[in-house]
Computed example of a mutant assay.
Amino acid sequence: MLNLRQIHHIAIIASDYARSKAFYCDVLGFTLLDEFYREERDSWKADLALNGHYAIELFSFPHPPARVSRPEACGLRHLAFSVDDIDLAIVRLASTGVSCEPVRIDPYTSRRFTFFCDPDGLPLELYEIS
């Protein structure tokens, strides 16, 4: 067994780096830890933290291919964030122009959740833990 300790980070490739950086930092509340331009790749890389914990590497690459489809494509389905109050989170997202799907109830936990998308259509989930 590998004895994995935790997930270190999630890597996201953005079609419009500045737009996605603003979304993850200004809308979702991530903190920009570091940012580098990698000239040999014509690529930006940002290290983003959530509540002080390094979580996302945000990249730009010239002409990245589009995502195959919505969450049912093979591979990463979505990225989920826990929230204390899903209704408040939905209102705050709406105030920035981000719309969420109707709230659903998890049939196994009875917790409420909803989906929304980042600027490139990456499915993101809010999952209420309170």
Rank of each mutant, 00 (worst) to 15 (best):
P107Y: 00
P102K: 00
S82N: 07
R104G: 00
S15E: 11
T109K: 13
F113D: 02
I105R: 04
R70D: 11
L79W: 09
A73S: 14
L93H: 02
A22E: 09
S43K: 02
A11I: 01
R112I: 05
S15Y: 08
Y24R: 13
L126D: 01
P123N: 04
E57V: 09
F115E: 01
F36P: 02
C74A: 13
R111Y: 08
L88E: 03
D85F: 05
I12K: 08
R111G: 04
G29F: 11
R5V: 00
A73D: 03
P65S: 03
H63R: 11
S43H: 06
H8E: 15
D106W: 05
D118E: 00
D42I: 02
L50I: 08
R70Y: 07
N51S: 12
F36R: 14
R112P: 13
H8M: 15
F115D: 01
K45F: 02
V91C: 02
A89S: 07
S99V: 04
I129G: 10
L126G: 01
G97D: 04
I56C: 12
C100Q: 06
S99C: 07
I129M: 13
I90W: 06
A46H: 10
H63G: 05
R104P: 00
S99K: 05
A80V: 11
A11S: 12
C117G: 12
L4K: 07
I7W: 07
R92I: 12
Y108N: 05
R77P: 13
L4P: 07
Y127D: 12
D120N: 11
E39G: 13
L124V: 12
R112C: 02
P64T: 13
D34S: 13
Y24G: 07
T31P: 07
I12Q: 11
V91A: 09
S130T: 09
C74L: 14
A46R: 02
A46L: 10
R104H: 13
S15A: 14
R38G: 11
D16Q: 12
G29E: 01
M1D: 10
H78M: 03
Q6I: 00
Y24M: 14
K45E: 09
S20Y: 14
F23E: 11
K45T: 10
G121D: 08
E128D: 09
V91F: 06
D34A: 11
E101Q: 04
A14Y: 08
Y127K: 10
C100K: 03
Y17G: 15
R38M: 11
S99N: 08
G121R: 05
A55S: 13
R92G: 05
F59W: 07
T31Q: 08
F81D: 04
L79H: 05
Y17V: 10
V83G: 04
Q6A: 15
L33M: 13
F61A: 15
K21M: 15
V83F: 03
R77V: 08
E128S: 06
H9K: 14
P123L: 00
E101A: 05
L126V: 02
H8A: 15
L33P: 04
L28H: 12
E128H: 00
P123Q: 03
Y17M: 09
R77Y: 07
P65A: 06
Y108A: 00
A11M: 06
F61T: 14
E39R: 14
K45D: 02
T109S: 15
I86L: 10
G52L: 14
S60N: 11
D120A: 03
